[in-house]
Nucleic acid binder design. Structure first.
Lengths: 352, 352
DNA sequence: CTGTTAGCGCCTTCAG
DNA sequence: CTGAAGGCGCTAACAG
């Protein structure tokens, strides 16, 4: 099996030195005589030469790879972010290496280690931090180590790792959503909270609750569960059981009002909201007739739902792009959180 | 700035030779004395040593990277495939480098070249081939070159590149769908065909048309357009104009029946179907009351639409996984196309 | 079992 | 402007 042509092959074929071949083919400040250059270029073409990036990276001790760590590529949230990251990286001449963690913090730490081993130029970490300070600390250590030897890193999420971070303003967004919904006339809310370990989920619950309080409304019913579509489905089913006063339904502690009075449900992300809509439909609960439903993120793929989903828009693509700029040091490090915007659609209706 | 610890640093610190350090830290068949091994391991830990994969790849002339090329990561089709590819690659101890082409064949060729430059171990190309034999040939050349020097490649799509391919059976799937729909009583169809340059789109149109013919039905109305959500929206809008006999509507040539008789619309992929549903809704056309709608792919994220979408299921994750196995040579090369299955849901209704 | 010694493919001073 | 030579970090014979 013929091996790849090397720079040396090219140099020999062109009758020049290795250095000259290197200069015309890969050197940035090439100052090679026209004649020689052409010979080298022709030789390279004839041999089908392609720079060996691994070798180049080694020699230059600087790779052209950007590492990206996400929870789940098939989740539209990360799909959009990843897409933007890839595009932005491309503009910097970088290739992207992705890893998925499925929300396993150990996997996240492990993947950072892998990227460090590849000596990638920069790492972008996307996704909610978790509440466990021990693993956060370990991840932080891993990143510190990467940075201490010249690596660059940026984060999308909670600013807990001491690196440049794109911070989605989950709390303010959720607060604004709560206020908007209150203005629609709702006063009895339930939140499908997601897991209490996920900071993103917690921030949204907190913000929403604050918003209700500021409107003088009672605290919402809190129904936890997984952060995905099925989690939303299950949580909504439990809510339905509660609302209809079903016998076996596990009650919610500390509730300030009976579940049957709930008129509006906030799922802490769109994917969960979709699951909730499905569950409500399956149980014959009309949306928005009987209850209104709101989500968070404004996932593009989910815009065409029926009823269309009220949500809080996050500029996902913009966030991905910005993370790359931060990681590459080509963006100001102003810590302004990613702007959010409440988008009222058909899944929430005003109460008379 | 402290540089990364190298193997040599570790060896020195442990008081052993480079080779020994290498053997305990990276060698597969390590046969190193217990005492020395422990000293090396401790030294490595103290120094925070991490193998430099780039150097390792160079020395071994074998990288542990798998390259993946998709059209658009934010498209749920590719998001699911990519996710599966990443997971499967991980099981092989490979990291994944992704590139997105946005259906630009030049970009696709370019990205294969990039991956070749990285000397990745294998390349997986996902996405429809296009009808242009010239670019297909160039891509094929690029892949041949990669393979000729030991690279492995696999494809998801039409088997046109001379590499192991996972072939979704678009034609048979569409044919079966047409038959099912005919059995429901429909006889006047329109197809939102997508672009005639995309082989995937063409195959589905062909299969569907064959299915209708086999049922003794007239040829469907063909409405072309882009392969994405907005393309589906626009094409459906045109159909609506046609159906309602609107003045300015550009008629469809060769139609065997008036557009107003159409009772069923087939969008050649789910994402387009979603756009079509939105357009129909926007124009007050009831689905499935006035027209039925069917898609293709069975994208998981889209399962919770209202009305739920009739479609043809493709085992997306399985296909991604299988492509990796093919690329790694760990799967039989049986050319059985990826199985399809018609899934009838609410968006299509039987006609009396 | 362990150490020595060439490379892997390319870059980059340093001379000429 | 061009060539020679050492080095990037690691592996893999080949000796001991």
């Amino acid at each position: 099996m013929p091996r790849d042509a090397t720079l040396e092959d090219v140099a020999r074929q062109a009758g020049v030195s290795l250095a000259t071949a290197s200069r015309v083919l890969n050197g940035s400040t090439r100052q090679v005589g026209r004649a020689l250059r052409e010979r080298v270029e022709q030789a390279a073409a004839e041999l089908g030469y392609t720079t060996n990036r691994a070798a180049q990276a080694l020699a230059r001790s600087a790779s052209d790879i950007l590492g990206l760590v996400v929870h789940d590529l098939s989740d539209p949230y990360f799909a959009v972010v990843a897409n933007a990251v890839v595009r932005a990286a491309e503009r910097h001449g970088l290739s992207v290496m992705v890893g998925t963690t499925f929300r396993d913090p150990e996997a996240e730490i492990g993947y950072v280690a892998t990227l460090r081993a590849q000596r990638v130029r920069a790492i972008v970490l996307a996704g909610s931090r978790i509440a466990d300070p021990r693993v956060t600390e370990r991840l932080r250590k891993e990143i510190d180590r990467f940075q201490s030897t010249g690596g660059r890193a940026a984060l999308i999420g909670q600013d807990l790792l001491g690196v440049d971070t794109v911070v989605p303003d989950n709390r303010a967004g959720a607060r604004a959503l709560a206020v908007s919904l209150a203005e629609l006339g709702h006063s009895r809310f339930a939140i499908l909270t997601g897991p209490s370990t996920l900071l993103t989920a917690v921030d949204r619950v907190t913000g929403f609750t604050e918003g209700l309080a500021s409107a003088g409304l009672p605290a919402p019913l809190l129904i936890p569960g997984p952060f995905d579509r099925d989690g939303g489905y299950a949580a909504a089913e439990r809510l339905v059981a509660l609302m209809s006063g079903e016998a076996g339904a596990e009650p919610i502690e500390g509730a300030e009002f009976p579940a049957s009075e709930v008129t509006c449900v906030f799922a802490v992300n769109d994917v969960m909201a979709v699951g909730a809509l499905a569950a409500l439909r399956a149980h014959g609960v009309d949306v928005p007739g009987r209850v209104s439903v709101a989500g968070f993120d404004d996932i593009p793929t989910l815009r065409d739902l029926t009823p269309s989903l009220t949500t809080v828009r996050l500029p996902l693509a913009e966030m991905g792009r910005r993370a790359v700029e931060l990681a590459m040091g080509t963006a100001p490090i102003t810590a302004e959180p990613a702007l959010t915007e409440v988008v009222l659609r058909e899944s929430t209706r005003p109460l008379p």
